[in-house]
Amino acid sequence: MNKRVKIYSTPTCPWCQRTKQFLKENNIEFEDFDVSSNQEAAEEMIRISGQMGVPVLDIDGEIVVGFDKERIKELLGL
């Protein structure tokens, strides 16, 4: 039951790094979109989350704003 995980992030954002680190530690594959260089991804992120803070996760269509560890764990069944 591999869920599709997308992360919208910026290279400088500490919480983005912590989120990605958390996913890696749990062997979760994810696609990373750098919203500082990819304008299309930035607009997509704002559209799906209704806000501009990073990181944003898209886990099979469920949107998580920020490094909300509990919610991420729940959605990924960790």
Binding site: T10, T12, P14, V35, S36, M52, V54
Partner: peptide
Amino acid sequence: KNRGLTYCATCDAPLFS
């Protein structure tokens, strides 16, 4: 907050290119 207003420039500055 997070709709253009932020307290973390390190995190969010790149979105304001």
